[in-house]
Design a protein around this nucleic acid. Structure first.
Lengths: 194, 194
DNA sequence: CGAAAATTTGACATGACTCAACTGGAGTGG
DNA sequence: CCACTCCAGTTGAGTCATGTCAAATTTTCG
């Protein structure tokens, strides 16, 4: 069950973990299953856990005054989930995170995660990489949202995230792109013509 | 000249740096002045430097096919500048970073920065915090862009970044918000009524 | 003062949203 | 195997927010 996580760590930092270190990591992460629609985090709660997806698909979204959902992030295997803002500042989260498919997670307390970072330099290396990637992805997406029309954004999305398209329905992807499902449907129709 | 930087580091990590460590930091960062409009980084170049703003104001933006500028970030005193994506992946940057006011920077090579992170645990702590904050800010902004109307985004902006308003002209702020200067002008007129 | 930069304004165009209706699976249970 | 429901996707008509462009006005600063 923990192999994916250990593999992931060793792939993103070197030299490999010692077996003592591996034991620490394994001890900190408990396997947990989430059913489709089940919440990992609910708006208003402080995010106390970090999850690593072994198998499945999840989404992070906010809900506005009108009840419309806005997808902030989508996650698949080997991704980390948590609301960093809430976890770092210990404030109630503005987001929900739930399972889109039945999902197997490895879950650790944020506090334990911090501990691992301090104790295992490699783990720190890895989380640094993680942070960097998240930031870069977020920056890119922001730039794309600010600069491009709905159509172009969709093209870029297809290009960059083919796996999301296979796993999430269109209305979720529309929300991720910041447009309505109706608009996305029309955009696709246009695109097919070409 | 380096005091601001050392202060910043000690404010964002503890215990304080030893004098040996301070010496390492000081050695890595060279003071440099940028005139208004001068580039720190140009689109197409690989970002090889990191800057810390001692005094002044800078902006990071992309330019689309039509020649329109899109402001990705604004920076003031005690902010770090660099294109993380380009620096991390050694690929040509999609962004420009230039001085909006005459600006005093402390500049280090990305490679030297990495070195400091490895040698000085505190420095690692600090950059971790930095990364986290950048990510959170970027996430927030993305969410706001996806969820809110132009008017609401401007309100939030006024609330969260009063200093930007004092230092950057409206058309820059409009671009940061992802709207045109014309629209921002109208939005403000509306807002004043209330 | 005068030139350049920033802002405002009006008329018009358009991309995206809204809402409701319709279509078409994919289950589920009788 | 059919009827039923749920969920996703499509489509059309009308509306609204924001963009475009050009001109007028105000502000900034050498």
């Amino acid at each position: 069950m923990h192999e994916n996580l250990l593999l992931y760590i060793n792939k993103n930092a070197s030299p490999p973990l010692t077996s003592d270190e591996e034991a620490l990591v394994v001890a900190a992460f408990l396997p947990k299953k989430y059913r489709k629609k089940q919440y990992f985090l609910q708006e208003g709660d402080v995010c106390k856990y970090v999850g690593f997806i072994v198998k499945g698909a999840m989404r992070q979204y906010s809900v506005d005054d009108k009840g419309t959902e806005h997808v902030v992030n989508l996650f698949l295997e080997n991704w980390w989930i948590s609301d960093r803002e809430s976890a770092a500042t210990l404030t109630p989260s503005k987001y929900n995170i739930d399972a889109w498919e039945d999902t197997e997670l490895l879950v650790a307390k944020v506090a334990d995660m911090v501990n691992l970072i301090e104790k295992i330099p490699l783990f720190g290396q890895m989380t640094r990489l993680m942070d960097q990637r998240s930031f870069i992805a977020s920056q890119r997406r922001l730039n794309s949202t600010l600069s491009n029309t709905a159509e172009k954004r969709y093209e870029e999305f297809v290009e960059n995230h083919p796996k999301f398209i296979q796993r999430f329905p269109q209305h979720i992807i529309a929300s991720y792109l910041g447009i309505t499902k109706d608009t996305l449907s029309r955009v696709r129709k246009q695109a097919i013509k070409k």
